[in-house]
Nucleic acid binder design. Structure first.
Ligand SMILES: [Mn+2]
Ligand SMILES: [Mn+2]
Ligand SMILES: [Zn+2]
Ligand SMILES: [Zn+2]
Lengths: 153, 153
DNA sequence: AAATCAGTTGCAAATGGTTTGCAATTAAAA
DNA sequence: TTTTAATTGCAAACCATTTGCAACTGATTT
């Protein structure tokens, strides 16, 4: 139940080899599409939609459906984390080994720019909420919204 | 920009007359479907999906599409607040007059039971996040997830 | 290097929530 | 009662995501 909200994005970019290693270990094949997808995720510090990944891919490299399937698989293996900015489109971000990827974002409602956030919902308060309602395994989903400096004027 | 996260659900149930009054004031018609929908929302302390509202309605009372349109309208008038539990289905809760409806929930991941939560993300921290990134009008979307007492064993 | 086989892919079709076009209907104002 | 703008139902469109399936391919075994 680790949830350290701690500077995930300061982690150095993961080696592609380390990523494919994780796949191999789970007896998943390293295919062209997958390598390409991981390569794109590796170079993006913010969550990407499947369509955005698709757009970055050299045209014809792979089908959109393949990306959907890859993200599902990577999520199940804990290699990417799914985020929901409330616009009905899933976004994915690469997660470091041993990290659960829990963190939050500040999103500009004008330009949809994204800032990675280090702060997390205070643990004591969350514990209090859990205890008060006798819930176990409590976690949270949290995103911030506002207007970024560029969009303010 | 009020965001008092304060005991919305302790508010006494709104009178139907007050609700229809708000509609009238905006030159919206009080129709059978709308009255029925408001009546259902009025009696439910937790967010409802359009389908759930539809199911509560006496069969044939109105079309599902009418509910979608009603909720859109009520949201625009600030009479209901839209919530997103991350399952791709919008949920709506009635909001008191003058209230912006901002609050949070604790959701059981097993039975999807919902608990209304009074706590909010600490204002000082949110202000710090806003200032640190020079964002204005910052707010947040926050929901808690866990396993409720009934589902624990 | 060839055979093997589970995992993977593309394409088309299905899904599920939500929105839209439009003609018929109706609440509320005149 | 007449008038008129708002509302409704129904069918179809939309959009993100999933699924079925036959063809294909990476990795492992002969
Ligand atoms: Mn992030
Ligand atoms: Mn609520
Ligand atoms: Zn957190
Ligand atoms: Zn809050």
């Amino acid at each position: 139940m680790k949830k350290t909200c701690a500077h995930h994005h300061h982690e150095k970019k993961q080696e592609l080899a380390s990523l494919t290693g994780r796949l191999r270990r789970e007896s998943r094949k390293i295919t062209g599409p997958r390598a390409a997808i991981l390569e794109i995720l590796r170079h993006h510090p913010h969550p990407l939609t499947n369509k955005e990944i698709f757009a970055e891919l050299p045209k014809g490299e792979c089908d959109l459906v393949t990306i959907y399937r890859a993200m599902q698989m990577l999520e199940k293996l804990g290699m990417v984390k799914r985020f929901d900015f409330g616009d009905g489109t899933a976004r994915f971000e690469l997660v470091g080994e041993g990290d659960d990827g829990h963190h939050h974002h500040l999103i500009c409602t004008r330009c949809t720019g994204v800032v990675e956030i280090d702060e997390c919902f205070p643990e004591e308060i969350e514990r209090r909420i859990a205890r008060a309602n006798r819930f176990t395994g409590v976690t949270h989903r949290l995103e911030f919204f506002g207007v970024c400096p560029d969009c303010q004027k």
